[in-house]
Write a protein that binds this DNA or RNA. Structure first.
Lengths: 329, 329
DNA sequence: CTGAAAGCGCTAACAC
DNA sequence: GTGTTAGCGCTTTCAG
């Protein structure tokens, strides 16, 4: 059994195929009576034009590839939800593309580009030159998010990570913390590099030495484990600046629930992202924001600007984090 | 500037368009040398067949619509991530379709069905007859999840919600709780109705009366607010059975962080879902599972069975929750 | 083993 | 204002 076609509707309505087509495309003028009649018949039969066939002839598409690198993160999940919703509000449909490991991203994107997407929005920790090459060959604009400040061959909307590191660490310094540990993310990821730079610069301003620099997968478990080890060591830190809210919540759990320490008295904790969860009473986490709404809004504007003019130069938008002070530091 | 076509590759490789097509479709036999040559040229040019055009002629599609009702829930976000990943592993691509309010679901789905999807997987709190009608007209199989036991005109994979309510409430009874409050979800949603039925039955078994029955949006904030009100009332409950982990965590926050009560000594709390977060030390939540892996696995099997035989009767798979006992009850 | 030709469902240019 | 025709990029008979 096959899908209903415009021809079927034309036959049922006693008109030509083009009349049916015209009834479903706003611009083409058609006698109101005929249009109404066609739409009525079509509705009865449950007909809708095939978007693929339309896309084929119009040489344009309402699909936008949304490429997801590593989404174990709680923040990422939230982010993609907002992004998909925003796209749909603008008449675009999100085609989800996942790549478990960063390495396969280009390959996976390549496969997905068999579908004629208007653009691809990529959230990843690092830039993949092969992915950019692929998308260029397919003539599909690529928009990175979470990376910056400038990407050769792609647009980007990025968070000023360094500024987040500065804001968070300066706040800890102002509180009087002397032994501030950095709980970082995956090596090489811009989110990690940038925040660490900010952390180091803030320490330098204050004439302090880094207490320690650790690596996580931006997640809760490794944040908790690292904090646990550090707090039980001979020389425990008096504060943590964390590369993500998830890692910060892990550290908070290690301190409060596992070691019965007081936060912020015994150890102060600052996160990065300011997810909704950060404001839960049991956490009450001080954090530098990574504002989803603002980033998604900028992504939509970048997307529209890019689709309006495919040939203009790379665009780059920077979003500035702000420090939200709560009870944890 | 337009997308590269098979014809372009044919010209560059000195062969016909059909040869190029054959090189990219496994079944068709082609001289190995010719195939290799064509694939080499195509790779150099960055050509990939247009999936839309292919879909048009083959009358089949690798797209699966993933319909998202209300996804503010932390659980739902996790669920959709797993679902998209599972689809992609099976060579399908998830086309995300969002509907803010339950009412517009049918309309939104209708629009999305302009794309020729192989099937649509819908996660919603209630069944929408109009959506089922739409998908039937478009000849697209519909698979519901989170709803059951049987849906006329659609397949479903559902959780035995009632069993979760029974398990959780019986556990509270066994602990010796006498004033067990039910923190429920949105009225009319199967997840709420089923769990409440289980809650009521377990109380009846024990000869207890319900302490109170409240309604949330399955979320943290309303769970917290309701628990706060109940615990500060003249007749506070000694236990909460909650319709979701999110609501349970809200209740836990109200009890521990806002009111300084001891959990489980002063008030015991049981959740439903057993999200990863439930095992965080600060929560240590006892909960009936809503196992994402198992549900997604069953969805994939149902999808494959349905695609293999479009005409067979409605299928229904039930997943049984299990009680995971931790410190909160 | 390969090329020419027809056609998937739709829209746009061209007739009338 | 409406129908006829050509063609989007691809796959698949059908010839050769």
């Amino acid at each position: 059994m096959k899908r209903l076609t415009g021809k079927d509707v034309a036959r049922a309505a006693g008109v030509s195929a083009s009349a049916v087509s015209r009834a479903f495309t706003a611009e083409n003028r058609l006698n109101k009576a005929t249009r109404d009649h066609i739409l009525k018949v079509a509705a009865e039969m449950g007909y809708r034009p095939n978007a693929l066939a339309r896309s084929l002839i119009k040489q344009e598409s309402d699909l936008v590839a949304v490429v997801v690198g590593n989404t174990d993160g709680i923040y990422d999940k939230d982010f993609f939800n907002h992004l998909s919703t925003a796209l749909q509000k603008r008449g675009k449909w999100a085609l989800q593309i996942r790549s478990e490991d960063q390495e396969n991203l280009a390959e996976t994107l390549g496969k997905a580009l068999m579908y004629p997407v208007a653009a691809a929005i990529v959230r990843a920790g690092t830039v993949d030159p092969q992915a950019i090459e692929n998308s260029k060959q397919m003539n599909v604009p690529l928009i990175y998010t979470g990376l910056g400040p400038v990407i050769k061959g792609a647009d980007c909307v990025w968070l000023n990570y360094k500024s987040g590191g500065l804001l968070g660490t300066r706040h800890l310094v102002r509180r009087g913390c002397k032994k501030i540990a950095y709980i970082g993310g995956i090596k090489g990821f811009t989110a990690d590099t940038g925040r660490r730079d900010g952390y180091l610069e803030a320490l330098q301003e204050a004439g302090l030495q880094p207490h320690s620099i650790s690596q996580t997968k931006f997640d809760f478990e490794s944040g908790m484990q690292i904090a646990l080890n550090l707090l039980q060591s001979d020389n425990p830190p008096d504060a943590f600046y964390c590369v993500s809210d998830a890692a910060a919540l892990g550290a908070l759990n290690a301190a409060k629930s596992l070691l019965n320490l007081r936060v912020p008295e015994d150890v102060a904790i600052v996160g990065s992202d300011n997810m909704p969860m950060a404001s839960w009473p049991c956490f009450d986490l001080t954090a530098a924001t990574n504002p989803i709404d603002e980033i998604v809004q900028n992504l939509m504007e970048t997307l529209e600007a890019r689709l309006a003019n495919l040939d203009q130069q790379e665009m780059s938008v920077v979003v500035e984090p702000q420090l939200v002070i709560r009870g944890s530091a």
